[in-house]
């Protein structure tokens, strides 16, 4: 018995590692090849992390599209922060023989290799939520452009203030590239449409709720005529609301910002925060799967300038970005319906 063990171990190892190309059976179909007619399309959806409520909502939308279109949806993702996991999952999907992989990329560069490997095997690849390098995918389902976010923030603020008066911005840092892009668009919209409104100050909060609260309190002291605080990083929205509430100015000084509905529900319902801006995450999942199916069937081709995504209607494609459309404004009237 004892003697047999090392031999068995070696045999098992040889069985696992011994995988020369000669072993492939001629009968099995090549993975990732075009799906034969009548066979269900198999689409794999990769979230950044599986338990995250945001991606649970993405899946909800994707499930809906899968049911409508008769698609086999495989939803799997890392459960911890192991950076190797996304690559491993994609590599497993390649040999599983899926038709399309749709990925929200945790590592822009790291996952590109795995996605390119999938493309080389004939699997269609698109990304959503967070992009990879452009050469590793056909399309990126873009949930919101900088212009969409900037304009929606400014338009909503103007509506809340009656299109006149002073407002201030709380940002994460003064160097964050994406937020500077949003600020540029906010200011462009301000100049173009709202001459009676004035941006009096922009303060960084280092992506911390406490600091956002403190900065907002300072702003309220420094600018007694302030009508609105606009928080453009997600921890700042509840932070600004708390400061306004503690100053006893709830309702008098409006609060709006870019953030998750769940983090702001209490303030929205009590009337401190008037508007939270984001996109409908379920729609993002629905669109991603819809576009993935069209890509596999050859209905969506590189170079297209628009795409009709069922009930979401005709959506614009800019370059290789499929645009989900204008961000959604969550208010007291609708925030209860969303859970992310």
């Amino acid at each position: 018995m004892k003697r047999l063990l090392p031999i068995l171990a070696c045999a098992a190892l040889a069985l696992i590692t011994g995988c020369g190309p000669s072993e492939s059976k001629p009968g099995t179909s090549a993975p990732g090849g075009p799906a034969p007619a009548g066979k269900k399309l198999s689409i794999a959806l990769l979230p950044k992390s599986k338990g995250n409520q945001y991606f649970v909502n993405v899946k909800k939308g994707a499930d809906k599209a899968a049911a409508e279109l008769g698609i086999e949806l495989i939803f799997d993702g890392p459960t911890n922060t192991d950076p190797a996991k996304q690559n491993e999952i994609v590599e497993n999907w390649i040999t599983l023989g899926v038709d399309v992989i749709a990925a929200a990329c945790e590592n822009r560069d790291g996952i590109a290799t795995a996605l390119k490997k999938a493309q080389a095997k004939g699997i269609k690849v698109l990304t959503y939520d967070s992009d990879t390098t452009p050469d590793a995918r056909s399309f990126f389902v873009n949930q919101a452009t900088a212009q969409g976010i900037g304009y929606t923030l400014m338009d909503t603020a103007a509506k809340l203030c009656g299109e006149e008066g002073e407002f201030a911005i709380i940002t994460a840092t003064l160097t964050a590239a994406n937020m500077n892009e949003w600020r540029k668009n906010i200011e462009a919209r301000l100049k173009e449409k709202y001459p009676k409104m004035k941006l009096v100050d922009t303060k960084p909060c280092d992506d911390q709720k406490d600091k956002a609260q403190q900065e907002t309190a300072n702003l309220l002291g420094a600018y007694p005529n302030l009508k609105c605080v606009m928080a453009i990083c997600s921890p700042a929205v509840p932070g600004a609301a708390e400061a306004v509430k503690q100053a006893g100015k709830a309702g008098k000084v409006k609060v709006l910002g870019l953030g998750l509905p769940n983090e702001n529900k209490a303030y929205v319902k009590s009337g401190v925060t008037q508007a939270v801006i984001l996109w409908k995450v379920e729609d993002l999942g629905y669109l991603t799967l819809h576009a993935a199916a069209a890509l596999a069937k050859g209905e969506l081709k590189p170079g297209a300038t628009s795409y009709k995504a069922g009930p979401l209607g005709e959506l614009k494609i800019e370059g290789t970005d499929i645009l989900l459309g204008q961000p959604f404004v969550f208010t007291k009237d609708n925030i209860e319906q969303f859970d992310f």
Binding site: T17, G20, P21, P31, T95, L96
Partner: peptide
């Protein structure tokens, strides 16, 4: 699905 495929064993 495709478990014994060489590519998968390599994986």
């Amino acid at each position: 699905r495709n478990f014994l495929q060489p590519d998968n064993l390599t994986n």
